[in-house]
Write a protein that binds this DNA or RNA. Structure first.
Lengths: 146, 146
DNA sequence: TTTTGTGCAAATCGTTTGCACCGTT
DNA sequence: AACGGTGCAAACGATTTGCACAAAA
């Protein structure tokens, strides 16, 4: 984890180590600054909210995390830095990955003088009102896939 | 234009008519509240900024415009209400359509108990630093816009 | 010791809201 | 007349920033 910070050209501090551990220990994560702050606050001597914001921005600048395109409101960061494909559950403010196997390939050429710096795909979901399904984020229906 | 408002179940007021005209007269548009306000402000007795915000939200609720998923900051609205596919030029804060012919088809099934309420695709662009484009970051010409 | 990071509170930005007044039905 | 819409300014939530102090190089 130290290496990760050092390689990114960031000084290794207690706060950054704590944040990096929260972000990168448990695999792929989607977080907001507030959410991460809440998570960090159970630990003794947690970083301040301002530091969480600053650190997430620093991490994003260095390419350790990636900002996600989403509707208004809060800014989300993803520990997976490649192109992004997400389901977004608006009423619960939940965001989760779409398995890469379901993603079509993009062959869209960049306009002249430009390069593609990132691709975001967001599929907004609504819950069907026949709410008898206690759906976990991962019980998606794969049968209907062509 | 009156019809458009009436069909949406919105009272026809001077301000709403003015905003609807700005939005729907010139084909497909991508706007922010601030941008639309600036545009409206050249007209005598323009709507207030608060009314622009409220009206855009009302229009979005009624399906006349659609909110776009984008990185942090401001909320963008699109007069094209179907699925969205955009190029986003970050350094200029410009947003424009990707021709539909370039878009791959999406056959991603919704998870059980959900329906797809919208699809947003954002391709973030960066300008290549080559000399082909002469303008320095700050000498953009806002007057000569078609 | 020099440089950079941190924490707090205040500032800022985009957006929403409370309230008195005005326009539409 | 009743209801909803508008404008202003104040409120708000998310994020950034100025500054004094602390920690890393």
């Amino acid at each position: 984890m130290r290496d990760k910070l050092e390689q990114a050209g960031l000084r290794v501090t207690r706060q950054r180590m704590m944040i990096a551990n929260l972000l990168f220990a448990k695999g792929d994560r989607h977080v907001t600054a507030e959410g991460l702050y809440a998570e960090a606050s159970v630990i003794p001597y947690p970083p301040s909210l301002a530091t969480i914001y600053n650190t997430l921005r620093d991490f994003a600048d260095k390419g350790l995390v990636r900002e996600i395109a989403l509707y208004g409101g809060k800014v989300w960061f993803d520990t997976q830095t490649g192109p992004h494909f997400h389901f977004y559950l608006e009423d619960r403010e939940e965001l989760f990955d779409i398995p890469e196997s379901m993603i079509p390939s993009f062959d869209i050429p960049a306009p002249a003088g430009m390069r593609i710096a990132g691709i975001d795909v967001v599929i907004k979901l609504e819950r069907l009102p026949e709410g008898m399904i206690l759906d976990a984020p991962d019980n998606r229906d794969k049968s209907a896939h062509p």
